[in-house]
Design a protein around this nucleic acid. Sequence first.
DNA 1: CAAGATACCTCGTATAGCAATGTATAGTGC
DNA 2: GCACTATACATTGCTATACGAGGTATCTTG
Lengths: 129, 129
Amino acid sequence: MAKPRGQTTDGDSPDRWEAQLRKGALEMAALASLWQGRLYGLEIIRFLENHSSMALAEGTIYPILNRLKMEGMLTSEWVEAEAGHPRKYYSLTEAGLQRLRQMAEAWTSFSRGLSRLLEPVLERQENLQ
Amino acid sequence: MAKPRGQTTDGDSPDRWEAQLRKGALEMAALASLWQGRLYGLEIIRFLENHSSMALAEGTIYPILNRLKMEGMLTSEWVEAEAGHPRKYYSLTEAGLQRLRQMAEAWTSFSRGLSRLLEPVLERQENLQ
DNA sequence: CAAGATACCTCGTATAGCAATGTATAGTGC
DNA sequence: GCACTATACATTGCTATACGAGGTATCTTG
C-alpha cells in the first residue's frame, strides 16, 4: 500500500490556516477593514485601496461579504443614505472579531516566514543598485 | 453607457502583481528556495517546510516547477543519486532571478500594506491578554 | 419620465491548489 | 530473481476562488 498522504480530511477546520491564508487574504482584509467600525460594500473596496493598495472588484467583494455573513462573522443592516441608493452596512460580530485575530496571527507568522526567505534576495539588490 | 469597469485587459502583463501575488505566493516561494543553489522537487518541499512553515504537497510543487521551467525561469538537470531514484535538480535562470526580485519587491509592499491593516488588531490583543 | 449617479448583486469562466493515484528506479531479504 | 519497500517524479480530477461583465434598484436632476 502506498503512503496515506494528506490525511487532513476536515476541510473547514480552523487548523489549516496556512493553506487557507493564501486563499483567504482577501477575506482577512475585508474583516480587517471593519475593525474601526461599519462600512458598506463599495466603501470597503475604497478603504482597502487606500490603506493597503489592494484593488478588488465588486464581483469579488460581495461574494466574500455574503460568505462571511453566512458564517456569522458579519452582520448587515440597510441604512438609507441622504442621497442615492440605500447602503448595506457590515459590522464585525464577536465571532468575526475572533476569526480576524486568528487570521492576523496566522498571517503574521506566514508573512514572517516568507520574509525570512526573501531577505537574501532583497539584500543583494541594495548592494547591486 | 455604464461604467467601463475593470479596464485591465492585459491579463498576463507584469502590472497585475497585487492580484497575482495572492495566487503566486507559492511560485515565489519555489523560486526563493532556489536562491542558494539547485534543489530537487521533494527537497524544495522540505526546504520550504523548514524555512517558512509552508506545507505544500507534491501535486502542488511539480506543476509549479513545470510552469516556471516552461516560462524560462528555471532549468532542470537529471542527476543520478548514490541510491534510489534519480533526481531532477532545478536551478534559477537569469530571468528567474529577475522575476524573483520583482516578486520579492511586490510581496514586500503587499505584505506591508496588510500588516498596516492588521496592526490595530494585533496591538489590542497584547493589551487584553 | 428620461438620464445619470450610486450601490448592490449574480453568472460564467479561467485558474489554482492539492489529494489521490500512477510510474520508474534501486536497494534488501529470502 | 521475486516480492517488498523507499525514494522521487508525474498526472488526473475535484473543488473553490477571483473577477469581468452585465444586471437591478433607488434617488436626483431637468
